[in-house]
Design a protein around this nucleic acid. Structure first.
Lengths: 348, 348
DNA sequence: AGTCCCAATGGTACTGCTATCACCGGTGCA
DNA sequence: TGCACCGGTGATAGCAGTACCATTGGGACT
């Protein structure tokens, strides 16, 4: 004889499951949270009941009853839209799944507006801040963070700061691996287009490339390297220079996909057949990589996973500080993958 | 003398605000929900207290205490990743903000797997389903939806079904407007690349184009039109044909951005200067449009807004049906915008 | 055999907010 | 003048979980 007063919410509740399984709600809670103090038999019975009733726990209730609810801020300026949207996807997903509040704030590109936006976030009482690139390397932001003492996670930063947690991939290794791939196809003259000089990852990718060449017995100083700025247009310019060399490279490795796409366009303009006359490799696996034709061989960063990881690490970090934790914040290195598509092949 | 038993959650609560403002928590609740039975004076006092304490309501608690929590499904097969990620962003944001549960399910491309995935969603007890393209036009899915009687929202479908709510832009008008833009620049021979024949929007965009030509006194039958399939590669083929015509178009309007990007690549390959020798227009404003150079003039669909709208409409629709609502589901037409970038100009 | 301990489980209170209804003073109307 | 009514407000009881502590019932140990 329930007393439901009109505000029904017809989902099945933990109590119904408990009744069905002949245990207390608490036990059901333990089962769904994988706690260890439950007899296998009990656990199985509960599981069965869950299946039969198609029970799914109510996340709102879980969060409310569970421990603290944190509010975390995500501050971004103007990274690649592709990166941001995928990253947000992961971050939103994680925070909604764990029931924490995510406050997203956009800021301009100047140090002043960055600082103002950060202040605004801090004012609103966030417990920690997620910093996707390029903010994760902005000195003014990092200084402000350190001063205020809030927890922070830097995403895809080349160089982990001392006070912030970081999520990233191993850019050096990834570039190294991609270079090995090109070498193994038989390329000996490989051009490289560097990324923006104000981002640490640019250096790491370059060094991964150069070291792989050395290890293969080639002279890294002889490798044709051009400066780029992570955008399409700078890729066009760099590609023009590289493809005009007398000793024209048979492969070009660009430090990101946008620039690689520009190399592809330039190659086509010059009447080169990709990948027969020229192999092209990118980095990031953004959308453009799979869109154009031939599709780009590239390095995939698990961006959505980085978003999830960033949120989850930030929560850990907040708790760690609350607990008076000592030592350094966590660092997490996610796995990258080499995505082999149609833009690379053995030289003609 | 509170009895906080360790599971603190140090955010300020509605009770603290109430105490500060000298009213009951209920009144604070009324103020933050903009209910009308509150004296302006009381309301102001509460607002002040909220400001002072930097109070933000706890969404989990709100949802839990509020009315029903719906579970809504989002089924997608393989639309453009760009579209999907932006769409998901909006949908996730809306559902997390309103506190409803969003279950995302991916399915293969065959009718059988589509049906199976839908069944799985329905089994899990969703109250409604969001269908982004191309599923929103899949007959088997729509039939299944109609049969099961769940609420559904079709997104960016050309043709609103009778039983489903829809969110979309006016594709006809958008294409019409873009064509007018090209005409106003002085183009008289404009090529068009059609979209995939299995999507209604392809037709609508084509007709918007053709009608704009007629209205400008041109013969739509004389317009060079090629079939495309919404992907880059089909755009390459179509562009090859269009640019090989003796009476070469001075502008090409592709039914989406991927194909427009392909036109650009082909133009460059042929040594044409864009936009001087050839203007190019796309549709969708996906990421590639802003990445390549020159950046594409295109039509922007407010995709994230469509995601938000889809979720919110679906909730309305579910409630409407619960209430035994009669009549047809809602239709919503969002505003598109013409994004003028560097790929269009007056003919040389 | 008695004691202690620990693993398994249950009972209760509490999370932050809102639905519902009770209440109260002031109108409008008979 | 009396009474129904109504706008503004408060008290209470949940919403669906989980934290915390109590309880129980075997072993392991003395």
């Amino acid at each position: 004889m329930e007393k439901r007063r009109g505000r029904s919410s017809q989902g099945v509740t933990i109590r119904e499951v408990a009744a069905r399984a002949g245990v207390s709600p608490m036990t059901v809670s333990r089962v769904i949270n994988n706690e260890n103090n439950v007899t296998p038999a009990t656990s199985a019975a509960v599981m069965a009941a869950i299946q039969e009733l198609k029970y799914t726990p109510n996340p709102a209730a879980r969060r409310l009853a569970g421990s603290e609810t944190f509010r975390i801020g995500l501050l971004y300026s103007n990274p690649s839209v592709a990166f941001l949207s995928e990253f947000l996807l992961g971050a939103l997903d994680e925070s909604s799944k764990t029931g924490h509040q995510l406050v997203v704030e956009k800021c301009g590109a100047t140090a002043a507006t960055e600082k103002a936006a950060l202040q605004k976030l801090l004012q609103s009482g966030v417990d920690g801040v997620v910093l996707p690139p390029p903010l994760c390397e902005a000195k003014s932001i990092l200084a402000e963070i350190a001063k205020s003492g809030v927890a922070a996670v830097a995403v895809a930063a080349g160089q982990p700061g001392p006070d912030v947690a970081t999520v990233r991939i191993d850019n050096y290794k990834a570039a190294h691996r991609m270079t090995q791939h090109l070498l193994s196809l038989g390329h000996r003259t490989i051009g490289f287009i560097k990324g923006h000089p104000n981002q640490t990852v640019s250096d790491q990718r370059l060094h991964g490339f150069l070291d792989a060449l050395s290890e293969a017995g080639l002279d890294p100083k002889a490798a044709p390297v051009e400066q780029g700025y992570f955008n399409y247009r700078s890729g066009l310019a760099a590609a023009d220079k590289l493809l005009a060399l007398k000793d024209r490279p048979t492969a070009i490795f660009a430090a990101n996909d946008d620039m690689a796409a520009a190399v592809l366009a330039t190659a086509h303009r010059l009447g080169l057949n990709v990948p027969v006359d020229l192999s092209i490799a990118g980095f990031d696996d953004t959308l453009i990589a799979g869109t154009i034709w031939p599709a780009l061989t590239t390095v995939r960063q698990p961006i959505a996973a980085m978003g999830r990881a960033a949120v989850s690490m930030l929560l850990d970090e907040v708790k760690r500080r609350r607990g008076g934790g000592t030592g350094a914040p966590a660092q997490q290195l996610l796995r990258h993958t080499l995505v082999e598509r149609e833009s690379t092949a053995a030289p003609a």
